[in-house]
Design a protein around this nucleic acid. Structure first.
Lengths: 373, 373
DNA sequence: ATGAAAGCGCTAACAC
DNA sequence: GTGTTAGCGCTTTCAT
C-alpha cells in the first residue's frame, strides 16, 4: 500500500519504519535540523522578519538540502484564501466540455488561465451546468462564468454560497456578481455598416438560437440596424452551434429566404472554409455575388481563397479585462465598478470587399433562389 | 475596503461590527447555535459517527438555516490531500496555451477534466514550459503532462518535488512517473495498410518536426513500414504545427517530392477542408488522384465534399485511461502497472476510398510535378 | 450517544 | 534578532 503523497503529509503518525514512502519534510523538521525555530526558518524562507543574513542563509541552505517544500494547503488555510478560481462556460450545457472545441472559447480559456496565473491565481475547469457537488469541495476564491445560458442555476448557486461571480452583463446588478462583456451591438452594426459601404443592400445574418446574452443581443442589434436602414431583415437562426447546424443555417440563408442576400454575416463558430464551400456549392461567388464575414477566431480564415473577413470578439482582451476586474475585487475590495465592455475587431479581408469593376447587384430582385447542388 | 471572502475565513478577529462583509459561518458557530459540539455537528453533516437521528437532523437543519458551508482548505489540510491535479500540454512550449486550439488537445483537455471531476479531482490548467513558481503554491496531488517535448524541465521538476507525474511513454521507467500513450505505430501502419489496400503505391506522410514522442514515433513507423513494403519513403516534416506550416508542408509533399504521391497521410492538426483545398489547388482530385487521410479530431472532416478519412487518436479514451491510472496510483498505491497503450480508430470516409472504375495509377512515373496555382 | 482536545503545517503577534 | 505561542477550520481518536 504505497502512499503517493504528492502534497500533504498524512495525519498519520510519522513512523520511522523502513519502506515508508519517505515522510514529507515539514517546516519543523528543517528548524530542528538547522537548530532554529519554525518562525525563524519561515521568515528566512519568506524573506520576512528581521534576520541576520547568516541565519537566513543557513536556514535556506538547510531547507534546500533537505528538499523542503512548503505545504500549499497549510499556507492557504493560514492565508484565508487559496488563490484558486473556477471557470465555467455556460453555453452548450447539454454537451459539457465541447466548448473547448470552439476557437473562441479555446482562446478565452487559455487567455484566462494565462492571465490569472500571471496574477497568481490558478484556474480549475468546471463543466457547464456544474452541480454544487462538483465545486463545493474546492476552495474557490471566485468563479468565472463565461456566457451563461438563461436557465443555468450555477450563478445563483455560487452567489448563494457567497462566491464572487464574474460573468457577462446578464448578471448585472446582482450583489456579488461582476461583469465583462463583448460589445455585441457594436460588432453587428460595424460589420453591417461595412457591408453597406461595400454596396450590399440585402445583408443576411446567421446566428445560433441560444439563450446566451451575446446571441440575443446580436439578433436584436441586427433587427434594429435593418429597421434603422430600411433594409429587409434577413436572419436565420441555427438550431444550435456547431459546424453541421450552422452550415445548414447558412444554406437556408442563401437559398431559403424571401430575398437572395448579397452579404452574409455568420455569428457562430463555424469553420470559415466550410462556410465558403457552402456558398460556392449554392452558386455564389465570394466576394463577387456575396460578401462574407464570420465572427470567428479560427485562423483557417487566413488560409482560404479568398481570405475570409472575420470579426474577432477579442477573447484575449476579454480575459484580461475579466481577470483585472477579478483581482481588483478580490484584492482591493473594488465593488463599485459597473463592468467592462470590450470592443471587437473587424479584420476586413478579401471575402467582404466588393471587387473593383464588379458593380453592386441590381436592386432587390424579389427572389432569385439558385438551385441547390 | 470590502473584503470578498468567497472561501476562507480571514485570520482577522471576528468583529461584530456593522458593514463588515458578513463573516463566514464556521462549524463552531453552527455547533454553538445548535447547542452541540463541533464533533457532533461534523459527524452529523458527514454522516459519520453514531448519532441519534434527532440530533443529526437538528444539526443539519441548523447548518442549513445558517448557510453553513465547510471550509474546503481546512478539510484538505486535515485530509492530507487536495484532490487537485495539474494539467500541462508540453507541445508548443514557445506559444503556451495555443494547445487548446488544437481539436485533439481541446478534447483531451475536456475529457481529462471531466473524467477527473467524476472521480473527485479538480484540474488546474498550467502552461507549457511552466515554472516551479507557477505551480509550487498549489496543493497538487499529481500532474498530467501531455506530450512533453524533449527539453521541457517540467517532468524533472515535478518528480524532484515528489509530485507523481502522468505522461506519455517517454517517462517510462522513472520513479514516480506513469504513462498512457497512443499507439502511434499501429496508427501509421494501419492507415498505410489501408492506402495499400486501396491501390496506393506512393503514400506520402506529413508530420510536424517536433520532439514529441508521438511525432517521432510516427516518423519512425512510417520509415519502417516503407522499408518493409519496399516502397519509397515520401515524408515531409512541417516546420511546426499549425495550419499555415502544415498546409505548406502538404504542398511540398504534393509537388516537391521525388515522386508524385498517390496517397497522403497528414499527421498534424490541420483543418481537413484546408488540406483538401490545397490538394485541389495543386491539381489533385480526391480521392481520384490522391487518397487522403488526416490524423484529426476536427469534425469539419464530416462536412467536406468528399468527407475526409480521419484517424482518431481517441483523446477521450486516453483521458479515461490516464485518470483511471492516476486514481489507482493515488488511492490504491498501485505502482507496478507499466502503463497503458490506447488503440487508435480509423474512420474511413470517401477521401481515401479509390472510386470503383478508377484504376490505380500506372506504376511510378519518376516525377510528374503539377504546376502550382 | 456526545464532547473535549489534539493536531494537520504554516504564519504572525508578541515576548524576550 | 530569535523563539514561544496561538490560532486558520476541520476531523478524529479517546474519554465519559
Amino acid at each position: 500500500m504505497t502512499k503517493a503523497p504528492g502534497h500533504g503529509g498524512q495525519p498519520s503518525p510519522r513512523d520511522g519504519r523502513l519502506s515508508s514512502p519517505a515522510p514529507r519534510v515539514r517546516l519543523v523538521d528543517v528548524a530542528r535540523e538547522a537548530g532554529l525555530s519554525k518562525t525563524t526558518v519561515s521568515a528566512a524562507l519568506n524573506g520576512t522578519g528581521r534576520l541576520s543574513p547568516e541565519v537566513r542563509e543557513r536556514a535556506r541552505e538547510t531547507a534546500r538540502s533537505m528538499g523542503y517544500r512548503p505545504n500549499a494547503t497549510a499556507r492557504q488555510l493560514r492565508a484565508g484564501r487559496a488563490r484558486l478560481i473556477g471557470y465555467v462556460v455556460g453555453e452548450l450545457a447539454d454537451v459539457p466540455w465541447t466548448f473547448l472545441e470552439s476557437p473562441y472559447f479555446a482562446r478565452l480559456t487559455g487567455a484566462t488561465a494565462a492571465t490569472a496565473l500571471g496574477r497568481g491565481y490558478a484556474m480549475v475547469l468546471l463543466p457547464a451546468g456544474s452541480l454544487q457537488s462538483e465545486w463545493s469541495a474546492l476552495p474557490l476564491d471566485a468563479v468565472i462564468v463565461a456566457d451563461p445560458v438563461a436557465d443555468d442555476r450555477i450563478v445563483d448557486d455560487l452567489l448563494a454560497a457567497r462566491i464572487p461571480v464574474f460573468s457577462d452583463r446578464s448578471v448585472e446588478g446582482r450583489p456579488g456578481a461582476h461583469w465583462v462583456d463583448v460589445d455585441a451591438t457594436a460588432a453587428v452594426h460595424r460589420t453591417l455598416d461595412h457591408f453597406l459601404d461595400q454596396g450590399a443592400r440585402r445583408p443576411a445574418l446567421v446566428v445560433p438560437d441560444s439563450t446566451t446574452r451575446f446571441h440575443r443581443e446580436v439578433f436584436a442589434a441586427h433587427h434594429d440596424w435593418c429597421a434603422a436602414h430600411g433594409l429587409p431583415e434577413l436572419a436565420v437562426r441555427a438550431a444550435e452551434p456547431g459546424n453541421g447546424p450552422v452550415v445548414r443555417a447558412v444554406e437556408t440563408a442563401l437559398t431559403g429566404l424571401p430575398e437572395r442576400p448579397d452579404a452574409l454575416l455568420v455569428v457562430a463558430e463555424a469553420s470559415p472554409p466550410l462556410v465558403l464551400d457552402a456558398a460556392r456549392r449554392h452558386g455564389y461567388e465570394v466576394p463577387g455575388d456575396l460578401l462574407l464575414a464570420c465572427v470567428s477566431e479560427d485562423e483557417t480564415a487566413l488560409h482560404t481563397e479568398p481570405r475570409v473577413t472575420t470579426l474577432s470578439l477579442r477573447p484575449d482582451a476579454v480575459a484580461e479585462a475579466g481577470i483585472e476586474h477579478l483581482v481588483a475585487v478580490l484584492e482591493h475590495g473594488r465593488v463599485e465598478t459597473g463592468g467592462t465592455l470590450v470592443p471587437v475587431r473587424l479584420d476586413v479581408r478579401a471575402s467582404s470587399v466588393r471587387p473593383s469593376g464588379h458593380p453592386a447587384p441590381p436592386p432587390q430582385p424579389p427572389c432569385t433562389s439558385s438551385p441547390p447542388t
